[in-house]
Structure formats: structure tokens, C-alpha cells
């Protein structure tokens, strides 16, 4: 089934419809004088009074620092003015850190009247026609899962099981730690496309999700496996591994050379030639799982081991060396 796409003006099978704005006219042909921006509401455009009535002819005092204590006294009666809401800092989203509030100042103004942009007439597809599930790490406590189900998959199921069974079938997410065991199952509400999943905040763990269908009989039919992610450990590393030192290999940079020439930087041991920077891997961390294994204590149910053909999970996966799954874990 075709994915839901934009509304083309003259779409044909062999001629994908260009986004509307691009089809309309090249920029050069467009009337340049009138940008397609919505009119501001009258209230917003209403001229405001000038900042303040003129004061007596008294000239401003010289702005020398010495004059400061005297000049600080507010001699000028103030006329209260209300700043337009568009500029008030309170219109920022709640819960932002100070830094984010400051950084947001780069993208002003805000709360403008509705504008009509010339923009692509494009509806984000509800499905790209593939069955997949992906995991992202939001923070040590939360994972974000998003998925797509090829409508053909559901059609096939409908043919096989019938409309009634399909209506009672639930899309299901299973989240598991492939190394240490443990899993959770989430019956997803109809129409959902993503979900936030609670992670084990106490320690770093690997997670992998499986998307499937739970039939009315309770049977689970797997549709797709996700990448594997490893949540970050919080807090200082508990392992008292003595830090190793090693020469950072590289010739001095131009800036460094300039500083050295000026007699400021006297590098004690800058190597004459670059030192090899072969990949280095940290020692495995002490893990709860390893401890449990060493103690002979029971572990939770283990997820099935990875098999060939499973989705590779990006750099996180690539970084975790096979057979050393505890590498970043705590």
C-alpha cells in the first residue's frame, strides 16, 4: 500500500510530484515585492506611544564613573509601560534551564502572529512502508522507541486470520537486556507510533526491543528487532582502576609552535614524530551481572543471543566488542 504522501497537483506514476512550493514558480518569476506572510492582527500592528514624554531640557549627565552615586537616584518619574507579550521572557517553555533560556534568545522574536510561509505542501508520511523498530537513549532513565509497520504486513494478517482477529490483535513492544536478562512487555495503544520506556536508572544496561503482535490467543508474532543501546552510567566509576598514562601522539599544531617560538610553551616531551594512535578500549567495568555470575546467584531470564542478520545498532553497537559486553556497563 502506498504511503500517505503530499497532495500532488499533477502526480503521475513516473513523475513524482514536487513539493508544491517548488512547482509553483522559480524565485525569479515570483513577484518579489510581496512576501507570502500573513498580516499581523491589527492589535499587534497598532502603533504604541513613544517611549516617554520629553523631559525638561536638562541634558544628560556626563557618564563618568565618578558621577555614579548621585546619578543613580531615580529622579525621573516613571510611566508604566507594558511590554508586548511577544517579547516577554515568560513566553518561553517552562522547565528550561538557565542556559537554555539564554540560548533561546538567539531565536527571537517569538509568539508572532500567525504567518503564512511559502513552504512545501508535504504531509509527513504515517508509514514509509517498512516494518522496523528503533531505540534511542533519552537519558539514563528513559528510552525512546519508534516504529513503522508495513501496511502489507497487516493486510497479510487480515487475510490469514480474518478481520475480527486482527481487530483484537495488539501491537506489542518487548524491551530486554540482551546480556543481563530481564524484560518488559508493553501492549501499545492503537495508532501509536512511538513510546517512552523506563530504563533501569540505577546502572548502565544494554537494551534491545522487539516489535510484534499479540494475537487474541496470546500468541506473540515477532515483526522486527531494534538496534541495541547502552544507557549511560551515572556517577563516578566505582572501579578503582589506576589510570594509565600515555603519550598523546601528534606533532605540535601551528598555534602551539607559535607559542613555543614565543618562549611561552616549553613542552616537556612532545614526541619528534607522531606516535601511533591505535584504537584503545577501556577495561571492562565491574558489573552487577558479573558479580551475580561470580556469586553463582540466579540471574533473570536471558534474552535470546544476537544472531546474524539482526539490525546493527550504529556506533554504540559497533563500539561494544563481541564477547566483552560489560565494557561500558555499570
Amino acid at each position: 500500500m502506498a504511503a500517505k504522501r503530499e497532495t500532488p497537483t499533477k502526480a503521475t506514476r513516473k513523475k513524482p510530484a514536487a513539493p508544491r512550493a517548488a512547482v509553483k514558480a522559480p524565485a525569479a518569476k515570483r513577484p518579489a515585492s510581496k512576501p507570502a506572510v500573513a498580516k499581523a492582527p491589527a492589535a499587534a500592528a497598532k502603533p504604541r506611544k513613544a517611549a516617554s514624554p520629553a523631559r525638561a531640557a536638562a541634558k544628560s549627565k556626563p557618564v563618568a564613573a565618578k558621577a555614579k552615586p548621585a546619578a543613580r537616584k531615580p529622579a525621573v518619574p516613571r510611566k508604566k509601560r507594558v511590554l508586548p507579550a511577544a517579547l516577554a521572557p515568560a513566553s518561553l517553555a517552562p522547565g528550561l534551564s538557565e542556559e537554555e533560556r539564554i540560548e533561546a534568545a538567539k531565536y527571537l522574536p517569538r509568539d508572532l502572529p500567525k504567518r503564512l510561509f511559502e513552504e512545501e505542501q508535504f504531509l509527513f508520511p504515517e508509514s514509509y512502508g517498512v516494518t522496523r523498530v528503533r531505540l534511542l537513549i533519552k537519558d539514563p532513565e528513559w528510552l525512546f522507541v519508534h516504529w513503522d509497520v508495513d501496511p502489507k504486513t497487516l493486510e497479510a494478517l487480515r487475510s490469514e486470520l480474518g478481520e475480527r482477529v486482527l481487530a483484537l490483535t495488539r501491537l506489542t513492544l518487548r524491551i530486554a537486556d540482551p546480556d543481563n536478562g530481564g524484560s518488559q512487555t508493553i501492549l501499545l495503544p492503537p495508532g501509536s507510533r512511538s513510546w517512552y520506556v523506563r530504563a533501569d536508572a540505577g546502572r548502565s544496561r544494554a537494551y534491545r526491543s522487539e516489535l510484534g503482535l499479540t494475537l487474541p490467543s496470546g500468541e506473540f508474532r515477532s515483526l522486527a528487532h531494534s538496534n541495541t543501546v547502552v544507557t549511560p552510567r551515572v556517577g563516578p566509576s566505582p572501579d578503582g582502576v589506576a589510570p594509565r598514562r600515555r603519550v598523546f601522539g601528534s606533532a605540535p599544531t601551528p598555534a602551539g609552535r607559535a607559542a613555543q617560538a614565543a618562549g611561552e610553551a616549553k613542552p616537556a616531551s612532545v614526541p619528534a614524530a607522531p606516535v601511533g594512535l591505535e584504537p584503545w578500549k577501556p577495561q571492562p567495568e565491574h558489573t552487577d551481572a558479573a558479580e551475580r555470575r561470580a556469586d553463582g546467584r540466579a540471574e533473570g531470564p536471558r534474552a535470546a543471543p544476537k544472531t546474524a542478520g539482526q539490525t546493527k545498532g550504529g556506533a554504540s553497537d559497533a563500539f561494544t566488542p563481541p564477547g566483552a559486553s560489560e565494557t561500558h556497563r555499570r
Binding site: 589510570p243 598514562r245 600515555r246 603519550v247 598523546f248 613555543q260 610553551a265 613542552p267 616537556a268 616531551s269
Partner: peptide
């Protein structure tokens, strides 16, 4: 880094 090329590995 030119001045202090020895770093801890972590």
C-alpha cells in the same frame, strides 16, 4: 596538548 601530551585514558 602540545605542552602536556600525556593524558589519562578513560
Amino acid at each position: 596538548l602540545d605542552r602536556h601530551p600525556e593524558l589519562e585514558l578513560a
